[in-house]
Simulated assay, not measured.
Amino acid sequence: MENFEPKENGECGNEGDEGTRITHAPCPVPKTQLLLHLIPIIGFFPSLWTLYRGKGSREQLVISRMSITLALTWLLGYLLLSTGAATSDFFWLRLFILNSFLTSGYFLVSFWLILRLIQGKSGRLPGFTTLAERVVGKYLS
């Protein structure tokens, strides 16, 4: 059963007929695993687990940081707008509308990133990825 176990050093090795290793190329991360990290709200948990373990490819860690930053930004905005709407007498409708725009934007950006990954393009957002690297990378990596 040792042929089915992952390699300790993170490399995929093809075994030859005599049991010799042919290549030492890094294992490619399956797209489905990266797509799982970008699912709105649900993808937060596998992303957090990936960063907590500290194991994964560079692309997987970048996507995880960005997913966590997107989710926490949405959650903070959602909570602030909901609290403001609940305590305001005059602006409650406007704050609820802003809250729905924020939530819709979070879901649309997540699905747009999923489509970009399916097309084989980069899953990075200009500016937001660097924020994620600085903030989340500092505490979870």
Rank of each mutant, 00 (worst) to 15 (best):
W92R: 10
T130Y: 12
F96I: 12
P28C: 02
P30G: 03
K55E: 13
G56L: 11
F111C: 01
H37P: 00
M66P: 14
A132D: 00
G127L: 07
L93N: 07
L102Q: 08
S82Y: 12
N14M: 05
S47L: 12
I118E: 04
L34G: 00
K138V: 13
P6H: 10
P6M: 03
G16W: 02
P126C: 01
E15T: 05
S122P: 03
T73L: 09
Q60I: 06
L34T: 07
Q60P: 01
T129S: 11
Y52N: 10
G13A: 08
G127Q: 08
R58V: 14
A86L: 09
T83L: 04
E2N: 15
G19H: 01
S47C: 12
R21T: 05
G43C: 12
L81K: 05
N3I: 15
N3E: 15
V62L: 07
A85L: 06
G105N: 11
I63M: 11
C27S: 02
S82V: 04
K121T: 03
T32C: 09
F96Y: 10
P6Y: 12
L76C: 10
G10Q: 11
G84P: 05
R21M: 02
V136A: 11
A86K: 03
L95N: 04
F128P: 04
G16E: 05
G77W: 03
I42E: 00
H37Q: 12
P28W: 05
I97F: 12
E133I: 09
N3W: 15
S64Y: 11
I63A: 10
P6R: 12
K138G: 02
R116P: 02
K31C: 00
L117E: 07
L38Y: 14
K138A: 14
I114C: 05
S100I: 08
F128A: 04
G43M: 13
F91D: 06
Y52T: 14
Y106M: 08
K7A: 15
R124A: 07
Y139V: 10
V109S: 02
F107I: 11
A85D: 10
Q33S: 06
A71F: 10
P40G: 13
L98K: 06
W74K: 13
T32N: 09
S110Y: 01
P26D: 03
F91H: 09
S57W: 11
G84Y: 03
L76K: 07
W49K: 14
L75I: 11
Y106I: 09
E8H: 13
S110C: 03
V136W: 11
H37G: 02
Y106W: 04
K138L: 15
V62G: 00
P26Y: 07
L61K: 15
L61N: 13
S82P: 06
E8M: 13
L140K: 14
L48E: 10
G137V: 14
C12P: 06
N3G: 15
N14H: 08
S64K: 12
S141H: 15
L115H: 04
S57C: 07
M66S: 14
Y52E: 06
R58H: 13
I42S: 00
T50V: 15
L117T: 06
I97P: 09
G84K: 01
L115Q: 04
R65F: 11
D89M: 13
R94M: 08
T23S: 03
I97L: 12
F101W: 10
W92A: 07
V62R: 11
F91R: 09
T20D: 05
